[in-house]
Simulated scan of single mutants.
Amino acid sequence: MPAWRIDWRALIEKNRAFAPQLLEQNIRRLRLAAPWIPPLNLMHLWLFWLRQPESVNEALWRQGVLAAHAGMLVFYAVLALVAWYLARRPELVRLRQLSVSVAVIGTLGFAALLSAIDQLVTSNITPLLIGCTLVALVFLHRPLSALWLFSLTLALFLFGIQQTQSVPDVLLSNQVNGLSSCAIGLLLAWLQWRNFIQINTQKQRLQAQAKLLEEQNYTLSYLAEHDPLSGLLNRRAFNHIVERELLRCQRTQQPLCLLLLDLDHFKAINDRFGHPLGDAVIKRMATLLSSQVRGLDSLARLGGEEFMLLLSDCDREQGLQIAEKLRQLIESQLQVVDGKAVAVTVSIGMSYLDAGQLSSYESLYVASDRALYSAKQEGRNRVKMAAPS
């Protein structure tokens, strides 16, 4: 697409995408701005009430200004209450949109009306300029909505001054000035909208980057503590957990068991069927073990075909029962993996701490490794137990 052409579809989609933020901003601004208008109306009413008219035109002008400001006072007082209520009710989307539209149209209507009334005694159109400027700066408008609003305001203003301004030169001057006032309002509204889009686009981009960074940090944190193949804790993370559990068990006088599991003849599986099948065996092993452990237990893959399981608040008899159950489960469930008869078995070495017994992680690990070596020496596919030294 040429650089000078506008992608209207993309522009409309972007405008729609920011509709919720637009509405929220306008409600907030209406809630802040509306309460300031009634006091100003009261001041105008007081000043014009004190002024005594000296001619018929001035009397009509004074009467019209008083009626307009009285109407504005009631209008904005009601708007202030409505805005205060709607600021706490984000679910009332339709009513929020309606209140903002009424506030904008009413403000521009009063500005055009006051400027037309002023033509009875003066050529002043300051209310129109102030109204267009305030509406453009206080509220956010989509470009097409702004074009429609300020065009309607100009039409209303032109119609009004034709009824009240009888001097042709002044009428022409005010028509041109009214067109300029509405054009200034339209330009300010467009600049406001453009700034709003840029800020929110940048905010979305920053939020997306922050979310991506958070996801990446989570991934890095996960990878730092988990084995990528099995999804289990890695040795580094498991060591921290065991050290913490040892301190807790010593404080609460609870027993624990440490199981070291090693798949039998795993190298032969890799050599015979290939490493992809070996990886599948590791994954199946991790799934089976994970399905059996309790929520308070910790399971890790140390590397290769070795796994370790910490059984918290578990004495030696319970630990032996769990270890034997795991051995039988693996023997029965890992006969066939991915259609290959692998007949996987596991040897398990277990160490334990009785309630109130003190020991270090290193002593427990050495005892579990010694028990595992004993299980391997005695023919594999069995559970052996050793106490820490």
Score class of each variant (00 low, 15 high):
N174F: 01
L186Y: 14
I161L: 15
I197F: 01
I184D: 08
N200M: 04
Q207K: 14
A208C: 10
Q204V: 05
N177D: 05
L179T: 10
L206P: 00
L188R: 10
T201H: 04
L187N: 06
L156H: 13
A210G: 15
C182V: 00
F196G: 00
L172W: 13
I197G: 13
G178E: 15
W193C: 04
L172I: 03
Q204F: 11
S166I: 15
W193R: 00
T164A: 08
P168G: 02
P168C: 04
S181I: 06
Q209M: 11
L206S: 04
A189W: 03
Q198C: 05
Q209V: 09
L172D: 10
N174C: 03
S181L: 09
C182K: 12
Q204L: 15
G185F: 05
I199S: 01
S173H: 08
F196Q: 00
L188V: 13
N174R: 02
G178Q: 09
N174W: 11
T153R: 01
F157Q: 07
F196I: 00
F159I: 12
L156M: 11
Q204W: 05
Q192P: 02
A210L: 14
S181R: 11
L186V: 06
R194S: 10
L191W: 02
I199F: 09
Q175I: 11
L186I: 14
I197H: 06
P168N: 01
S173M: 15
D169T: 12
A189T: 06
R194D: 08
L156N: 13
F157N: 09
P168Y: 09
S166M: 08
A155N: 05
Q175S: 14
Q162K: 00
V176I: 15
A189C: 11
N195C: 12
L179I: 11
Q209A: 12
L206C: 01
N195S: 09
L154F: 13
S173F: 14
L191K: 15
V167G: 03
L156Q: 12
Q175E: 05
N177T: 02
F157V: 01
Q204M: 05
A155R: 02
A210W: 00
A208Y: 07
L188A: 14
T201K: 03
A210V: 04
I184F: 07
L188N: 08
W190T: 03
L187P: 02
T153K: 02
D169Y: 02
S180W: 12
I161A: 12
L191S: 08
L186D: 05
L191R: 05
N195R: 01
V176S: 10
L158A: 05
R205D: 10
R194K: 14
V176N: 11
R194F: 10
T164S: 14
F159K: 13
L179C: 07
Q162T: 08
L156S: 04
A155C: 04
Q198W: 07
L154M: 13
G178A: 03
K203Y: 09
F157I: 01
L188K: 08
A155M: 09
S173Y: 15
L191G: 02
L186P: 08
F157L: 03
A208L: 14
L179M: 15
